[in-house]
Design a protein around this nucleic acid. Structure first.
Lengths: 248, 248
DNA sequence: CCAAAAGTGTTGCTCGTACACCCATGT
DNA sequence: ACATGGGTGTACGAGCAACACTTTTGG
């Protein structure tokens, strides 16, 4: 079998789908767009689109993200400064039946973003919104799901990746604005994991991990109570020892 | 843009590449095949091939694995019993320039297998062999690498995945035969991590983790010394607390 | 007897947890 | 004054590292 012969392999459409997560009002939320056409017309779906002929996968994901949200994401596989959200490849979904129209292989990407103003609709989507992942994944075993295609599965995988990755990396700061307090960071962990954490021990833990947080200089009272010190994300990306997620 | 219109998106070739790892003679080894044609003719490459038109990605990886090694791998995303190697999706590589002939998106998969008899060559490969990953990755930063395409990068990602995943899962047993001793399992960890572990503490740790190992009943002296108890892999897949990898 | 590998005991230390307690602001 | 959230002190316990030590085979 010669790889030069175009008849020797079947052609595929390749897309990127985006799991864009943020924390709003103490809940983990995902960006979804309403489908304007068949199939699944009127249902919610993850944002995404076709990869262009001369475009890398991460670049396609970043482009789609910018089109949908205006976010300028940083792909850590490319050198550069993190000037916005975190973007990483999640997994690839290629079930022959996942799209009834044709054979589509979708390379899903995960984006972690700070809380944003209302998303703007783009492309062929009627509208876009942030939805709590709990609602989107409700009864997604067996029963009919609110999401189109296999997007409930993709979203679940993305949420699971985010939940485990903030354990051993500093990625939780990607959910925060450039300057944030220890309490705000703790509420991110609580929202993503869906648990309550001890504020005192959390404070000791994150401030005691070298390179996790660096003082930004100021204080704020935007949460009420005693003024809290402001921090930025430090240079460290891996947390050793990790944050421990409480049992069930 | 209508997704129905075939001219609206560029066609891609989709392949699977396999990072097949095993432990031989205290070294972590990967399966490589010699390329029989251009480009990179005569160089070593990871086994792989085109995904068929009606085939899921995991099924394509399992088929290629069987063609190359005769292994019957278990894809944990499908229900069933682990009757051989462990197989999981690794990552997807789609740089437009990664294959000089055409646009190829490759979905890499990771396979962990017990030590096997000499692999058999298959497909368009002249020959296949197990090579220590240290040799394959030697000087793979900047300098010319022994592996074709971007396979050094894919292999490095697979090795890194395996190294981190045996920390918090029972996957190290996938490198062992069905029945194995605690010492053999320890030598797997030592080979994959490239460190020496305390045999006493390791023994306590793995036998004390519920569900990690179940006694198989017999003993063996195939390693010399006092007879060692034989174990099988238990039902547990996640280790809590994890195995701790010693600092560099 | 000796080497080699298996398996157990014990001690000290690190770190997480579960509190009690004080600090600095807004109302 | 009091509520609210920020930040520190401390005691208990789980679990890991670093040993010494015994057990059971082969040569």
């Amino acid at each position: 079998m010669s790889p030069y012969d175009p008849s020797a392999f079947p052609p595929f459409a390749v897309t990127v789908d985006l799991v864009v997560l943020t924390v709003r009002r103490h809940a983990l939320c995902a960006l979804v767009v309403r489908r304007g056409e068949q199939p699944f017309q009127g249902r919610w779906a993850l944002p995404g689109g076709f990869v262009r002929g001369d475009e890398d996968l991460g670049a396609a994901a970043a482009r789609e993200l910018a089109e949908e949200t205006g976010l300028c994401a940083h792909d850590p596989s490319a050198p550069g400064v993190d000037n916005g959200a975190h973007l990483e490849q999640l997994a690839t979904y290629g079930d022959p039946q996942r799209d009834p129209r044709m054979r589509v292989v979708s390379v899903a990407h995960l984006v972690l973003a700070p809380d944003l103003p209302a998303p703007r609709a783009g492309g062929d989507a009627n509208s876009a919104r942030w939805a709590p992942v709990d609602e989107l994944l409700e009864g997604s075993d067996r029963s009919a799901t609110v999401l189109a295609f296999d997007h409930a599965r993709i979203l679940a995988d993305g949420v699971e990746r985010a939940r485990s990755k903030i354990e051993y990396s500093s990625l939780a700061t990607a959910f925060c604005p450039p300057e944030f307090t220890v309490g705000e960071l703790r509420r991110v962990y609580e929202a993503v994991w869906g648990v309550a954490l001890d504020p005192r021990n959390f404070h000791r833990k994150v401030t005691g991990t070298p390179g996790f947080l660096v003082p930004a200089g100021g204080t704020t009272t935007r949460q009420g109570g005693r003024p809290a010190q402001l921090f930025r994300a430090g240079g460290a990306t891996l947390l050793n020892p990790p944050m421990l997620r409480p049992e069930v």
